[in-house]
Design a protein around this nucleic acid. Sequence first.
DNA 1: GTCGTTGTAACGATTAGTGTTACAACCAGG
DNA 2: CCTGGTTGTAACACTAATCGTTACAACGAC
Lengths: 148, 148
Amino acid sequence: MVETDVSANSRLTVAAHALTWIGLYQRRGHEVATSEQIATSVNTNPVVIRRLLAELRKAGLADSQRGAGAGWMLVRDLETITLLDVYQAIDPGPIFALHRARPNPECVVGNGIGPAMTAVYDEVEAALRGELAKTTLEDVLRDVLKTA
Amino acid sequence: MVETDVSANSRLTVAAHALTWIGLYQRRGHEVATSEQIATSVNTNPVVIRRLLAELRKAGLADSQRGAGAGWMLVRDLETITLLDVYQAIDPGPIFALHRARPNPECVVGNGIGPAMTAVYDEVEAALRGELAKTTLEDVLRDVLKTA
DNA sequence: GTCGTTGTAACGATTAGTGTTACAACCAGG
DNA sequence: CCTGGTTGTAACACTAATCGTTACAACGAC
């Protein structure tokens, strides 16, 4: 398979894509969507979709049925799901990390830099979450349909 | 060397640490700081520091002299350097990525999800940069000295 | 019972970041 | 002109995260 380029995290993109796809599919009268169908739209392997949707199920955003004719469905409506909900569901690690090894505690800077940077990073992550909370999957779907 | 745990990016932390250390060292009357000294405070290898400072030099934040008795110095004062300057100097990739492989363009969602998510991601990154711009390395140093 | 679907383990490939060694390039000071 | 300390940078190994893939068990509608 030919890839364009890699480096950052596409998990949020794929998760939003999958949920939006399920939502639209259900609106068109279908009960459930299979990981195969979603994978075809995302252009990836169905297992990748099942792994990701399993995390969203743990967070109460999606649910699945097993057996023949089964598949995935939304638990909540698209309007009530924000990208922050999706983001937290896939449990991304922190954006920034402190030092891999503890800096020298006998150095003034080495000793105090950890708390100083943590304070900043907390604010940054809060701002990031605030931005993600502004957009619902309904907004995403509206934007998607506008493109088409 | 024993590490605590890994997963996210500590480059911004180390870069801010190094610049703050140089700034404090220069305030105490020294001309230049060696990568060896900085590495001792950060608790890493001097080459890691030199690699990172080389990127900060490209961005006009630091400069180096070669030869015996040489080392690193600040180009701008700590007050004039924000964490956003440092962040952009180390050229981090985007926080979020779109799909690794292009989604199915024949699917409405696959076709429109890219622009929709890109719009959100742009806002998120702008918010992140806005937060980083609020803090200068002088603020960081003040916070560091408060801890000690 | 059958068949389509989810659940999940296992493995390889890719990528980013980090730590380390090695050595060339450079230059202040004698 | 040497010498020694420092930067510059290539090279390599290691870890960890993500992704793609194969394989197969578990499940359940019919």
